[in-house]
């Protein structure tokens, strides 16, 4: 009997190695391919010759704009929806289940569908064109369920006793939400925001035909601009000899994602709980 368990233990170790190997290979291969291109100039210069020369500075600016637009939509709408779920809808009610259904479907929707929707509705119908605005809003639709669910979780974690205390003091619902509930849940909501940033940074398909391909530095959110992730795809697939620069861009993107990961871990640490908004 015990021998079976020992065999299983060994087999599992082999499986873990089999999974870890490609992941390590991925990190090493991309570093190996890209690190020669990495330099301060790569980060500070704009791309030239379709990206074959120069750096990625304008792409980082475009990415920043897209993220800013995305958060400007997703954070207020997401927080509002999370408050609606946690404060105004009775648990288990039809409205709660209905909204839960909407969020689950949105979370499972393929990103390319958000791309199609963003193209048709934002770029064409609303006339935003291929722009950072279209891209950011389309992306905000995609991260909305993640943002809402993490904010909702943070709000529900605030002890109910606080609410009774507030009610006993005659605090209005608005006062309770703005002065006590949201500030106490702020660290958890921040985690949701950062998670959403990570998801948005990693996304490519949504942006292909909303934000566009243009390498230039954007002047406003109505300009088209290329995100880092789209650049990786384009350099790897469409530009001959672009693999090195695609890999270098991937290194930058992964570094940003790791930074985000570290920030989340810092926020989740309990010593920071109850921080400021």
């Amino acid at each position: 009997m015990v021998r079976r368990d020992r065999v299983a233990t060994g087999v599992g170790a082999v499986l873990l190695l089999a999974v870890a190997m490609p992941v390590v290979s991925m990190v090493l291969a991309i570093w190996d391919q890209g690190h020669d291109e990495l330099s301060l100039a790569f980060l500070l210069q704009d791309p030239r010759q379709a990206g074959q020369a120069g750096g990625i500075a304008s792409l980082m600016i475009s990415t920043g704009w897209i993220l800013a637009v995305c958060l400007a939509v997703a954070v207020p709408v997401g927080l509002g929806c999370a408050l609606y779920l946690s404060e105004q809808v009775p648990p288990g009610s039809r409205r709660e289940r209905g909204l839960g259904f909407v969020l689950d479907v949105l979370a499972a929707t393929p990103s390319i569908v958000f791309g199609l929707f963003g193209y048709q509705f934002l770029a064409i119908t609303l006339g935003f064109g291929f722009s950072l605005l279209s891209g950011g809003i389309a992306l905000s639709f995609m991260v909305l369920p993640l943002m809402i669910r993490s904010a909702e979780q943070a709000l529900r974690a605030v002890p109910r006793a606080h609410r009774q205390a507030a009610a006993a003091l005659g605090v209005t619902r608005t006062g309770w939400i703005t002065r006590i509930l949201v500030p106490s849940a702020a660290p958890g909501i921040a985690v949701g925001v950062i998670l959403s940033v990570g998801r948005a940074l990693a996304e490519t398909a949504v942006l292909l035909f909303t934000a566009g391909y243009v390498l230039r530095r954007p002047d406003s959110v109505m300009d088209s601009g290329r995100a880092l992730s789209v650049h990786i795809y384009d350099m790897a697939m469409n530009v001959p000899g672009g693999a090195d620069r695609a890999a270098a861009t991937a290194v930058v993107l992964i570094a940003a994602l790791i930074l985000i990961n570290v920030m989340i871990r810092g926020l989740i640490r309990p010593s920071r709980a109850g921080g400021h908004a």
Partner: peptide, 11 residues
């Protein structure tokens, strides 16, 4: 990111 998985696949 999935595009990085794709890049690794390609390379």
């Amino acid at each position: 990111p999935s595009v990085v998985y794709g890049l690794w696949g390609l390379l």
